[in-house]
């Protein structure tokens, strides 16, 4: 990975930061923050689902672990928010490694993998809804207390900036994945697992590494979410909504591409707001549109929005296309 590889992530950060400080209204700024958080969750999903070809329906398990960890540490142990952030990411990654260890050891993939991740997230949701440590159904509320160490800002633009910087870091991580040997192994497994194994790739370890990285990134999204709303409960943390939004953003944006999840999150959430506005606030219309877009994407643009750009500039064979069709004929 060279300095040139970091140029695009850097430009993205500068553009987004410029936007955050361009005098957006409070509501638009909140929307931008939310886009960044979903984009991070989707960037996590993309590592496993896009590069590794393993579709998870349960990334909520990681998101929620990150969110709960930081709030529990802050409210009951008085740990500062940044330490909570690190702990949240690490614990989220550990949950990812645990689920990955069990699933990959049993050779689960495809639909089976999707279903088991969903089941794990649901178990966590039900358990956290009654366990005392997670505040039961009441959830956990973090008291309002501005300060850099508390990761709470009177001026929300600073929080937006921090979220943007993390998105930039995740972009750089994805770029590294594209360039590294580890990433190459992962893509090889996605394309043809038997062949990769025959060539000496340690399939189990590479997959385990991918889910750990993926979970950590999504857990970071959970930490930022909790820090932004200062509240988490079982539905917010482990509910299916975040698994679905992460998956949507990654697929619509373009699987296995660096900018796909970011572009997908911005496009979908922006479109969601517009639909809500046009429909006059009828509940569910935004998600209805998301569902339709998902089907259309899978049917007609398997490479997502990023492949549209590549088609326009004449580059061929978008990565995502093979990601979605990899199991064809298998």
């Amino acid at each position: 990975m060279s300095a040139r590889d970091l140029l695009l992530p850097l430009i993205a950060v500068l553009v987004l930061a410029g936007l955050a400080f361009s005098g957006l209204s409070g509501t638009l700024l909140n929307l931008l923050i939310f886009m960044m958080i979903i984009s991070l969750a989707a960037q996590g999903w993309n590592i496993l689902g896009g590069f590794g070809g393993l579709s998870s329906f349960g990334h909520a398990a990681f998101f929620g672990t990150g969110a709960y960890t930081t709030l529990i540490l802050q409210t009951s142990l008085g740990v500062n928010a940044w330490a909570g952030l690190v702990a949240g990411v690490l614990l989220g990654a550990a949950v990812g490694a645990g689920i990955g260890f069990l699933s990959f050891r049993s050779g689960l993939k495809g639909s089976y993998f999707a279903l088991i991740t969903l089941a794990f997230a649901e178990v966590l949701r039900i358990a956290s809804n009654s366990a005392p440590i997670t505040g039961g159904a009441a959830g956990i509320l973090l008291p309002l207390d501005y300060g850099f160490l508390n990761l709470q800002f009177d001026d929300r633009r600073w929080f937006a900036l921090i979220a943007i910087l993390f998105v930039g870091a995740a972009l750089a991580l994805t770029r590294w994945l594209e360039r590294s040997r580890f990433g190459a192994y992962l893509i090889a497994i996605r394309e043809n697992e038997q062949a990769a194994q025959a060539l000496g790739v340690d399939v189990f370890r590479v997959k385990l590494g991918a889910i750990t990285l993926s979970a950590g990134c999504t857990a970071l999204a959970g930490v930022l979410y909790a820090q932004n709303y200062l509240f988490v409960d079982a539905h917010v943390a482990y509910g299916p909504w975040i698994s679905i939004e992460a998956l949507f953003a990654a697929i619509v944006g373009g699987l296995g591409t660096m900018f796909g999840p970011l572009v997908g999150a911005v496009a979908l959430l922006g479109l969601g707001e517009i639909t809500k506005m046009v429909s006059g606030g009828v509940p569910g219309v935004d998600l209805l549109v998301f569902g339709a877009i998902l089907i259309l994407t899978v049917a007609f643009v398997p490479g997502g929005l990023m492949s549209l750009r590549q088609r326009l500039t004449g580059r061929r064979r978008p990565r995502g296309e093979t990601a979605l069709r990899s199991e064809e004929g298998a």
Binding site: S25, G26, T27, L28, N30, L31, E273, I274, K276, M277, G280, G281
Partner: peptide, 13 residues
Amino acid sequence: TILKGGVAAAAAA
């Protein structure tokens, strides 16, 4: 007036 969603509210703000 029922608020219709974030951006709508912002536009009308």
